[in-house]
């Protein structure tokens, strides 16, 4: 275990809750509060998984993901997108984001989050 997970969300409460949940499961967790910060932390820390909010100020999730894909050293890191958007827009977003991403709609059940994190890490 002891895999590294980066949480990027502009909502500190979400970050805190998700971090607590993941730490309790034994993961090492870091957090960032916007896309720019997230990008920087990803480059420095090289996490095994990024949990990324779609809508954020400064740099939103999809933009940050696109930047990541440009960088050879970090473009293999899997991403779970958190989204509070309604279903259809979610699908739209999905169409515009390339390859290997996962989606979790807010509000999610703890079990949904845990299962997704486990399966994504296992698959990568």
């Amino acid at each position: 275990m002891n895999e590294k997970i980066l949480i990027v969300d502009d909502e500190p409460h979400i970050v805190k809750m998700v971090a607590a949940r993941l730490k309790s499961l034994g993961y090492t967790v870091e957090s960032a509060f916007n896309g720019e910060e997230g990008l920087e932390k990803t480059r420095q820390w090289k996490p095994d998984l990024i949990i990324l909010d779609v809508m954020m100020p400064k740099m939103d999730g999809p933009t940050m993901a696109a930047e990541l894909k440009e960088d050879q050293s970090i473009n293999q890191i899997p991403i779970i997108f958190l989204t509070a958007l309604i279903k259809r827009e979610e699908d739209e977003a999905q169409n515009h984001m390339v390859g290997g991403n996962y989606f979790l709609a807010k509000p999610f059940d703890p079990l949904e989050l845990i299962n997704m994190v486990k399966s994504v890490l296992k698959n990568n």
Binding site: H13, I14, M17, V18, R21, K106, F108, P110
Partner: peptide, 10 residues
């Protein structure tokens, strides 16, 4: 949805 998420999670 956002506050619901952390209420539920909390």
């Amino acid at each position: 949805r956002t506050p619901l998420t952390y209420i539920k999670e909390g």
